Simulated assay, not measured.
Amino acid sequence: MQKLYTLGGRKFVVMSINPLGCSPWIQASRPTHQGCRQDLNLAARLFNSRLRRLVDKAKSQLPNSNFVFVNSYGIMRKIITHPTSKGFSDARSACYEVATINEGGNGILCKKDGRTCANRGIHVFFDGLHPTEAVNVILANKAFASNLTAEVYPISIHHLALLI
Rank of each mutant, 00 (worst) to 15 (best):
Q61N: 10
S49N: 09
N119A: 06
S23N: 11
C22A: 13
A145F: 12
Q61A: 13
S29A: 15
Q27F: 04
N136H: 11
S156Y: 03
M15I: 05
I108Q: 03
C95Q: 01
M1A: 15
N102A: 11
V55Q: 05
I138K: 01
L54K: 03
C117A: 05
T132N: 01
E151S: 11
Y5L: 08
R45D: 02
L139Q: 00
P19K: 11
A43H: 13
E133T: 12
A58S: 14
G8V: 06
G128F: 04
S85P: 09
N64P: 01
T116V: 12
L40G: 06
R50C: 09
C22T: 07
G8Q: 10
I101D: 14
D56T: 13
F69Y: 15
E97A: 00
L139S: 02
N66P: 10
P154R: 08
N41H: 14
L54Q: 05
L160R: 00
I79W: 00
V135A: 05
G104T: 02
G121F: 04
R45L: 13
A150Q: 10
G104K: 04
L62M: 15
K11H: 10
R50Q: 08
A140L: 07
F144T: 03
M15H: 04
A145H: 13
N141G: 09
I138C: 00
S72C: 05
N147V: 14
Q61L: 11
N71E: 06
G9I: 07
I138P: 01
K142W: 04
S49A: 10
Q38Y: 15
A28E: 12
H33A: 13
R37A: 10
K111D: 06
N119V: 11
G8P: 12
E97R: 00
N64W: 11
V13W: 03
T100A: 08
Y153T: 05
N106D: 15
I122E: 10
V98H: 01
R37T: 12
S72N: 10
K78P: 03
K78I: 04
W25H: 12
F125H: 04
I157S: 01
N102S: 14
L129M: 12
N136E: 08
L163P: 03
S16T: 09
I26D: 12
R53W: 06
G128M: 10
L46V: 15
S93E: 04
G105F: 02
I26R: 10
T116W: 06
W25L: 10
A150K: 08
G105P: 02
Y96K: 01
S29Y: 11
L109G: 03
A28I: 03
G74R: 03
A91G: 04
L62R: 07
S65P: 11
N66T: 15
L109S: 05
